[in-house]
């Protein structure tokens, strides 16, 4: 790792100030992606601003619309939360399947979203559930938030404080893990409301997480796995690498989507 300085502010305004004062400073949430990135010298921040001691960034609250989850809430807390289990059980399932136990004990919701890795799990839930990413300065609807590989709508120095997840009729997340890295090669989150069905896909898209609108429309008129039998996402939009071709990933997406529908309808 290159050297950096370390700050641990105890107020959100101080963290915002630290980022504003130093354009090369980076936020440290759980560090489960950032620290490996630093160890490989793929990034060289001048300072790390640790969010762990700022009050109000951790916690899960039942709201009128669904759930409000603090940005520094760890995956283990979402996975084991009775409230999440009751309101959006698919979200607890998703959080419980991120990385491994030790990673879930450190990794956070906000960290995952700010990083926006194309194989991360949370982006699929945020997009399918049409959640709202709340920052220190505004509210960003999920549809505007994700902008491509590791690209988000976050401005320089903007800090995610919580995410508001609306409750839905039913939802489920299914993923196919790369057998070696355990990252999603295709992860599909299906969410059904009274008005529509949204299908978000992670791990497979060339430009990160995306809505598979064709599947969503078909499932809106008939919420059954069979309705996807004749649909496949366009392989031209999918990743092709040593782990699998785009056509292979397209098939995985279809199958994961069908399994998610089956699970959600149960």
């Amino acid at each position: 790792m290159f050297a950096f300085t370390y700050q641990r502010p105890e107020a959100l305004s101080d963290a915002v100030g630290a980022l504003a004062a130093d354009g090369e400073a980076k936020l440290l949430a759980g560090g489960q992606t950032l620290l490996p990135t630093l160890k490989q010298r793929l990034a060289q921040p001048s300072a790390l601003v640790d969010l762990s001691r700022i009050p109000g960034l951790v916690g899960i609250t039942r709201t009128a619309e669904g759930l409000a989850i603090g940005a520094m809430t760890r995956h283990v807390e979402v996975a084991s939360s009775p409230v999440v289990r009751e309101v959006i059980p698919a979200l607890a399932d998703l959080a419980g399947g991120i990385g491994d136990v030790a990673v879930r004990n450190r990794g956070t919701l906000g960290g995952s979203l700010a990083n926006d890795d194309p194989t991360a799990d949370y982006p699929a839930a945020v997009l399918a559930l049409n959640a709202i990413v709340v920052t220190d300065r505004r509210e960003i609807p999920a549809g505007d938030y994700f902008r491509g590989l590791f690209e988000t709508a976050l401005e320089e120095g903007e800090i995610i404080t919580r995410v508001d997840f609306p409750q839905v009729e039913c939802a489920a997340y299914m993923k196919f893990r790369n057998p070696a890295s355990r990252y999603a090669m295709a992860g599909v989150f299906v969410a059904k409301t009274a008005a529509e069905v949204r299908v978000a896909v992670t791990g497979a898209g060339q430009s990160g997480v995306f809505l598979w609108t064709e599947a969503g429309e078909a499932l809106t008129s008939d919420f059954s796995p069979q309705v996807l039998d004749t649909l496949t996402p366009d392989p031209d939009e999918l990743m092709s690498d040593l782990h699998g071709s785009a056509a292979y990933r397209a098939q995985l997406v279809k199958v994961m989507a069908q399994r998610a529908v089956e699970k959600a309808a149960r």
């Binding site: 489960q32 620290l35 490996p36 640790d50 491994d100 030790a102 004990n105 450190r106 890295s181």
Partner: peptide, 29 residues
């Protein structure tokens, strides 16, 4: 592995398993 895959470095931080190769010493303050 030094890449948070293998778990040989697991210790408990406030009683919970964490990968100490993917945690800074200052985070244990």
């Amino acid at each position: 592995c030094d890449t948070s895959q293998c778990g040989a470095c697991v210790v408990h931080l406030d009683g919970e398993a964490v990968k100490s190769c993917t945690t800074l010493a200052v985070q244990a303050d």
